[in-house]
């Protein structure tokens, strides 16, 4: 988990000077650096007690089991799908540094992966017929989810130009797709041991891959935590990084074909217009 947070913020925090965040004088009147002053960026006592923002961002991430199970041996391909994230937020300040932030984000996010797996417990059910067991080979997954999320966050002004917000979100999905196929890996190994590791061994290769489509088993809602970091690049213009860490299984828990709970974890970077 810490790797992901580190990775997400690597892109957005490269320009942050530690002194800017932590060494800032708390009293805006005493600020000598006009560039980063409270007078310039607010809030002051006259205005800036409320902010409206329209966000446009690009999301990348995955819906994955946490922690990644040992059965997943390597990730051979990864590419994002969709990624557009449009949001509207309102933040109300109770003091110079503290406030609340709420709004909605319309998103379309997803990914494609090809992973080598070993003894990966899986089950496929079609029309009531099921085949389950332990698969070794390559598992290709394509997932895409679009919906709207509603965050409700505590808002903290780290400095005149840096804001952070953190809190829960709930979301509902307009459409979720989760499909893929399994076949042999680059070494030509692709098979399912039916029911147990000592069961029948069924060869599955890329000429006759086993496909799956779990769309109807995707949940229509989700919840998690959202962390947002904003940097005021210009008077009305923010650059932001956002991490949405899903805490609810994206797949119906009664659906046992997927052996692990899958959590949507997506990072977004983008720009915001601040009214």
């Amino acid at each position: 988990m810490r790797y992901f947070i580190a990775a997400l913020f690597a892109a957005t925090t490269l320009t942050i000077n530690a002194a800017t965040i932590f060494g800032q004088d708390d009293d805006y009147k005493a600020t000598t650096n006009v560039q980063d002053s409270w007078e310039k960026w607010g809030p002051n006592y006259i205005n800036h007690t409320a902010d409206y923002r329209i966000r446009l961002g690009y999301s990348i991430g995955g819906t994955m089991p946490i922690p990644v199970p040992a059965e997943i041996r390597s990730i051979n391909e990864f590419s994002p799908k969709g990624g557009i994230n449009i949001g509207f937020e309102f933040s109300k300040m109770f003091s110079r540094r503290w406030g609340v932030n709420a709004g909605f984000h319309i998103f379309n996010q997803g990914f494609h992966t090809a992973a080598d797996v070993k003894g990966y417990k899986m089950s496929i059910t079609i029309d009531g017929n099921s085949m389950s067991g332990f698969f070794t080979g390559c598992d290709v997954t394509n997932m895409q989810m679009s919906g709207v999320s509603i965050p409700a966050q505590a808002f903290f002004r780290i400095s005149p130009r840096w804001d952070v917000a953190f809190g829960p979100y709930v979301c509902t999905y307009f459409k979720s797709s989760f499909e893929g196929e399994v076949y042999d890996n680059k070494e030509g190994v692709g098979y399912l041991r039916v029911d147990t590791p000592t069961g029948e061994r069924v060869t599955i290769d890329r000429e006759t891959p086993a496909t799956y489509d779990f769309e109807e088993h995707m949940r229509s809602w989700g919840a998690g935590l959202e962390l947002t970091l904003d940097w005021k690049a210009a008077h009305h213009f923010n650059v932001f990084g956002m991490l949405d860490w899903g805490l609810s299984n994206a797949i119906d828990p009664d659906f046992d074909a997927v052996a692990f709970p899958m959590f949507p974890i997506y990072g977004t970077i983008g720009a915001a217009y601040r009214f």
Binding site: Y3, F4, A6, A7, L8, A10, A11, I60, G61, G62, M64, P67, V68, P69, A70, I72, R73, S74, I75, F78, G267
Partner: peptide, 12 residues
């Protein structure tokens, strides 16, 4: 970074 993160999560 995302891909590296995934790789770093691969267990024994």
């Amino acid at each position: 970074s995302g891909t590296m993160m995934l790789h770093s999560c691969i267990s024994e």
